[in-house]
Write a protein that binds this DNA or RNA. Structure first.
Lengths: 195, 195
DNA sequence: ACCTGAACACCGTTCAAGT
DNA sequence: ACCTGAACACCGTTCAAGT
């Protein structure tokens, strides 16, 4: 959906505009990774080698630019989740663990990712990236169903519970806690079936 | 400690300065509760009925003002934890639950509180409110010791694990999740002893 | 169509002038 | 000693002029 949109837009873009858009996104990635939401639009423009006006032509506000980056990350996360669903291993518990670890790793690389997860956890009626969110939940639901069937997770754990768990994990990682491993181990252990 | 500091300073303040300082803090409380960290210094000054310069005389930066508010909240939380330690009930698990619920409730009323918890979870070497942090950890340690002795919590759960748990909870609450209750129930259940 | 960058608006912070 | 608020600095955003 978002990919389709991007292509439709792309068709109407001049060649140099396409290049500039990509350069801006790449520059923004670097700037936001380094400075978080404090990153400056002027700095993004400088790194991309364009004028500020060009940045604003492609992304109406700083927030929109940040969200475009998150959308790209979302696609990565979706691809990862799809792999887990499509290539099931012998242990149905493992993909659950991998999802949480992937969430933590993504948060470490991209400070904007925690915000995306917070939006999902808030579960406002609709919102940006709604389709991405739905797809991720559907994928997680499949992973959970398998794990439940195998009796390796609490049988009352639903996919709808996960965004909040990811959100919590992301904030712990982002707090810079050296020991998010310990936090994650506690969390995962708590998701195991009750006796 | 912080209370002592405040009194030492108070002695050197002129009567009108004391009043103004209190008015600024009260105005800041309202402004930050309403707008979060987006609150404007000019607005704080207006609500307090003073000039911006007066706000800056008492608090060198916006960040310092926000931290003063958090320090006050911290004192409230410490008082609550002290009560739990000093007036033990029949059920040693209950105070643990109350601590988490109090954390969630405080986060709902004060958006700045989540930041304080994130700092604790990050456990940087030192930092502001270090004594408050230490005291809170010591109190939690006592509550945990009792619960462990009664066999109502995982015996590997340490007080040092709690800041991360609080941090995660606070971010879920702050995300505006209607169902942080569900999140908290999952979390607490995960802290129960293993079979 | 798209790009540029000077100009504008907004808000955190400072400081000269007041009491 | 402390207060005031105009002035400054910084950064997000706009828009007239260019190609």
């Amino acid at each position: 959906m978002s990919t389709a949109d991007a292509q439709i837009v792309t068709k109407h873009l001049r060649a140099d505009a396409v290049r500039n858009r990509a350069k801006v996104l790449e520059a923004a990635r670097a700037a936001f990774a380094e400075h978080g939401s404090e990153a400056q639009m002027e700095d993004v423009a400088r790194r991309a080698g364009v004028g500020v006006g060009t940045v604003y032509r492609h992304f109406p506000t700083k927030r929109a630019l940040a969200e475009a980056l998150v959308e790209a990350r979302f696609d990565e996360v979706l691809a990862f989740a799809r792999t887990l669903v499509d290539e099931p291993g012998p242990d149905p518990w493992e993909p659950i663990v991998l999802c949480f670890e992937h969430c933590a790793a993504t948060t470490e690389r991209d400070r904007g990712w925690a915000t995306a997860l917070a939006v999902m956890a808030g579960s406002a009626v609709a919102g940006p990236r709604e389709h991405q969110q739905d797809e991720l939940l559907a994928l997680m639901d499949q992973l959970l169903a398998r794990a439940r069937a195998a009796g390796v997770v609490r049988d009352d754990l639903a996919a709808a519970d996960l965004p909040a768990l990811f959100c919590g994990l992301a904030s712990v990682v982002q707090a810079g806690s050296k020991s998010w491993r310990r936090y994650l181990d506690l969390l995962l252990d708590g998701l195991r079936p009750r006796p």
